[in-house]
Amino acid sequence: MKIGIHGLTSCYGCQLSMAVVKRILDVSEKFDIKYFYMLSSAGKIEHVDVAFVEGSVSTDEDEKELRMIRENADVLVAIGSCAIHGGVQSILFSEGIGYEEAFKTVYGDKKMDYNGRIAQPLDKFVKVDYRLPGCPPEEEEIMYYLATFAIGSWPEEKDYPVCAECRRAGNPCILIEKGEPCLGPVTVAGCDARCIKYGIPCIGCRGPVSDVSWFDSLAMSFRDRGMDKEYVKKRMAIFASRYEGLNEMIDKIYGD
């Protein structure tokens, strides 16, 4: 089975996670890896059974590359928060800041040899067949996704929140107990509630739970615990700025 592993605009953390799985030798035996940019820039995009794509579409070049990957792949898997939701770099979207303004603030009058834009997730451009969430994804899930493809099956995506794993793990709920701004209720499970285990509230790095993340209900719970709108909005937008209706849901609770 032929696979390709690609990176658009991102930190390459997802590719790294795939490169360092403990059983990488078994993976390379099972799959014919046609493209893995992080390991070798010599590869060229050719037809594969499954293409894994990390990163957001943040330049015209990204979009072109993504379309080419899609045309050459039977199955396309978006890996990581950038590819699935646009990632941290898309935060400007919910703040309503345009690309030109953002560029100027950071780079001044410098010229770049690419045409940038505010980051967008893959599914704004191409059909995404499966999503492997995480920032970066967990090894266990990477192996699960690969193994299902290896036997000609497909992965079952989780559509429940971090809270489920938090309860299964027997952690105290720090949102109830300490009023911590935990985003566990709106973040897709898979990390075994890692941060909460260390007493740190979830910041939502794995991204929202497909289309069943109730940011309005959580905003209400935060508001009732005394958190102000700007803070809640900023926190929720870090990994979910591209989530449909995010701002409206927050406005509904706090008022415009």
Partner: peptide
Amino acid sequence: SEKCLGCGNCTMT
């Protein structure tokens, strides 16, 4: 149900 987070804490506990 509008207030509910769908988080499952109620059933898990």
